[in-house]
């Protein structure tokens, strides 16, 4: 057993590592924003009175939550190609991650909707708020506030899961690592550095969401509820 590590040989590629980390964050940011919107729509759709929409949303959520992301990415990648549509690997990665995180977001949001006391909705209806107003002020915003911690940890998991996009040659952090290790033959050192970078990225994201939570939900801060 002789373990010889040579970090300097790998660390001199730091611009590539940083570029990969930046792209990983970019992927995560796009997928988070689109996925949050898409997932919220799916959650609303699941509670729809139209049974067709409701069951379509349910099928979507269950299909995504019970298949691996890797398979989903390949299906989107080759599916779009077989339709004759050509997109960059980055676009495909954002699309696949959006579809994926959308399903998890939908499930979390649904839990949030269910946690809204029935009496509040009745009270709002009694005050003659329109359906849209009830949805926005009484259901959606308080629900988001309730599930904010669960949502944000899902988005951090999404950032980590975006590493799988390296398999369709999106040039994010893991893809950069694969490239550097095949160039330097220093696989162990490379992946240690990348692991450290991912840990830093996830800490940065958590801190960011925590700060955002303080700004978005001042009520929570006043009540002193831990995020």
């Amino acid at each position: 057993m002789s373990l010889q590590l040579d970090f300097p040989a790998v660390l001199e590629r730091w611009p590539n590592f940083l570029g990969g980390a930046a792209l990983t964050l970019e992927l995560a940011a796009f997928a988070t924003v689109f996925g949050a919107l898409f997932g919220t729509l799916a959650a609303v759709g699941r509670g729809s009175r139209n049974s067709l929409i409701a069951s379509a949303c349910k099928v979507y959520v269950e299909a995504i939550r019970n298949t691996p992301l890797l398979v989903q990415i390949f299906l989107v990648y080759f599916g779009l190609a077989s339709l004759g549509l050509k997109f960059s690997a980055f676009t495909v990665a954002v699309a696949a991650l959006t579809i994926n995180v959308g399903a998890y977001t939908a499930e979390i949001m649904r839990a949030g909707f269910e946690a809204i006391p029935r009496g509040q909705i009745e009270a709002a209806e009694g005050l003659a708020l329109s359906r849209l107003q009830v949805y926005w002020h009484i259901i959606l915003l308080p629900a988001i506030e309730k599930v904010y911690p669960a949502l944000t940890s899902q988005f951090v998991l999404l950032m980590l899961a975006s590493s799988v996009c390296s398999q369709i040659s999106a040039e994010e952090l893991t893809a950069v690592a694969n490239y550097i290790q095949s160039d330097t033959y220093r696989a162990f050192e490379t992946y240690i550095i990348v692991a450290v970078l991912y840990v830093i990225l996830s800490l940065v994201m958590r801190a960011g969401f925590w700060g955002l939570g303080l700004v978005l939900f001042p009520r929570r801060r006043q009540l002193g509820t831990p995020l």
Binding site: L160, V164, T174
Partner: peptide, 8 residues
Amino acid sequence: QGTPLLVI
């Protein structure tokens, strides 16, 4: 929990 399974 801060590292992707792929990297592990």
